[in-house]
Nucleic acid binder design. Sequence first.
DNA 1: TGCCAGGCCGGGT
DNA 2: ACCCGGCATGGC
Length: 231
Amino acid sequence: MSVTGKYGGPLPKGPWAERLHEIFDRLLAAFGPQHWWPGETPFEVCVGAILTQNTNWANVSRAIKNLKEAGLLNPEALFSIPRHVLAEIIRPAGYYNVKSERILTFVAFLMQEFSGDLDAAFSLGLWDLRSRLLSLKGIGPETADSILLYAGGYPIFVVDAYTARILERHGLVGDDVSYDSIQSLFMDNLPSDPALFNEFHALLVALGKGHCRKGRPRCETCPLAGIHLNP
DNA sequence: TGCCAGGCCGGGT
DNA sequence: ACCCGGCATGGC
């Protein structure tokens, strides 16, 4: 399994490109394909992206189940219910007051700008739509990029706390790097393929939940052992 | 029992 | 421009 063989688009060269390819290959060998995002429709992915902010997916999935059973997992239905009703339905996901507000903000944006049609939103250019998502209260860079990649299929790399911790723990970046610079590191050194970005981010999460957990001193048996900035 | 989870916002310095 | 508290549930 190699980036070169499996994914399309121009293939960047250089030390970072080689390191990232090595990391991807090792993670894929260790964990196998992750089949993300765990959601059935693009709209479900959007809602899930908001619900999973600083939250365990097991809790999010309960909230999604509640939404499905209530017939609320579509923009039209959500647009017409009071915030406090939505809050109770998504309660298991935690932060239910702020998250219900954020979901309704996103839904209002969809309804008012695109008549609730996600496909219409996804006909915009990547960076155009990204800046509009970022202008919504409660949608930050990771949530926006998750929506763009996993619901919209745009070629954009999602960075999260796991990504930063893994790179930092392996001496590949400092502990003060910004979201945007980590994102650029991946996007400038990999073929611009949504399927690759999808799998890569999911694999980093798999590593972050396992070997590279917070509070773990060192990754003795880490699949990435031996990868350094200066080999 | 305490710590953690696929962030983001707003107020204070 | 940073830094930090708040937001909250459920699993280990």
